[in-house]
Design a protein around this nucleic acid. Sequence first.
DNA 1: AGTGGTTACTGACCGTTGGTTAGATTCTAT
DNA 2: ATAGAATCTAACCAACGGTCAGTAACCACT
Lengths: 216, 216
Amino acid sequence: MTNKQRARAEKTRKAILTAAEALFSTRSFDEVTMRDIAELAGCSHTTIYIYFDGKEALLNELAAEPLRTALRRLERTLYRGNLSPDERLAAFSREFLRLALSQRALYPVFFTVRASRVDEKDPALELQRLRNEIFALAGRALQAALGVHLAEDRLLAYTRSYFYLLHGIVASSAASPESLDELLARLGPTFDLACLCMFRGIRAHVHEGRQEVSPQ
Amino acid sequence: MTNKQRARAEKTRKAILTAAEALFSTRSFDEVTMRDIAELAGCSHTTIYIYFDGKEALLNELAAEPLRTALRRLERTLYRGNLSPDERLAAFSREFLRLALSQRALYPVFFTVRASRVDEKDPALELQRLRNEIFALAGRALQAALGVHLAEDRLLAYTRSYFYLLHGIVASSAASPESLDELLARLGPTFDLACLCMFRGIRAHVHEGRQEVSPQ
DNA sequence: AGTGGTTACTGACCGTTGGTTAGATTCTAT
DNA sequence: ATAGAATCTAACCAACGGTCAGTAACCACT
């Protein structure tokens, strides 16, 4: 493979990703067709199959970068100074919701990835890894905000509970035709309220020491 | 139209609904084709279009009955005696989750209904009405469990928060291949925990009288 | 300059989908 | 028996995701 060839291929590949990103930012998975993407990218829809193993794989690859960015930003939020642990959890939640809602079409992709092949290069696997890391991050934020050390399974149950809420917020708002800013302006305070209540409830539950729950 | 003709038509219509119900109970919207339904119902897929205005309308009509049943059962749960208000809220949550998860394929239909036509007979409208009634029911249950009267907008914000959680639980579990019983056996306690924490958090928030949140 | 091989790309095609329509079949009422 | 409405079906449509044989572009070597 020569330089010119590689450059050409890279350019086409990039054009496909850019086109797909633009289309998926306003339309859902099913509403965007491979031919739409190809037209915007300026190539035949067949060409896409040279670079990607189909529509889902394309979407997975497309989702990976925003998710990597998300992980990085969430980590930064979490280790940022001059914030109390529960403020940090709140900031984490806000950041998570902002990221998820800014990528509404991609969000279902993150959270319904089902490992298909064991192939290491399968982008679905990286998505799953990234998702698990974000989950673990939330667990650590929650742990820190609670201020007491918890057994792994109990922390898991609380983190799951917290994530159910975040997930529900995104899912409820995903179908909205509003822009991210409109959405946050209208419901942002409610999101904050919901997260705050959830955290307070978990903290109360922990401190009451009720342990009748042992899931998994 | 004579009686015999009507009876025949009714039978076909029923067969279609039954077949669709059977198929949607194990497969998702996209995985079930009109031809699958027709085959199981013992007719041509074209026949379905005589009775229903397409796949989505069929699904809406199909979803209406379970949702009516759900509303009825949730009402019964709510007005059942010998339960404290917060036990009642917990029972409501459990019942809601059980119903939603037993109809996993239909659940997204309930919650993404977008009013299409203003036609009174549009089944999507009834779905929306039913959904709103269930939401109102949850609001009343929450109000009762909190034990204090709240301004409408504050109760709305809390109810929304609570529903975000329920919604998130269903959405997170909807993709699971497990049966309802397996799912509840594995995660039921976590669901209960999540609902309990959310309620405790809301109650704490109410009693602290923090009112900096005024959404909508 | 021309040749061969690799890479990048495309048009035509496949099976399947949701949906439509002309017309055959079935049934009832007379 | 037959007209006429109700019911059903075979054949069709455009669009989908995806495949494949073949073409065009490029580079290295003689």
